[in-house]
Amino acid sequence: MWGVIKSVLAAFFGVQKERQRRHDFEHGKPGAFILVGLLMAVVFVVVIAALAIYVAG
């Protein structure tokens, strides 16, 4: 699970080690990545929104 999260984070950042990438594509389940990806997208929105609301006071 942690591996999937790390890979999704790397994808968000846009850089991934070739070896890890190949490993994910060959052995990972696409469903898991899609689900975690969607969740992380929501988390991303919430984090930025929280920051904006906090700064706006």
Binding site: G14, I48, A49, L51, A52, I53, V55, A56, G57
Partner: peptide
Amino acid sequence: LPLAATLFFMYTTMLIAVP
């Protein structure tokens, strides 16, 4: 827009420039 919304959209827009 409310300030918080302006900030939110400013931050995300700056981020989109990175990729």
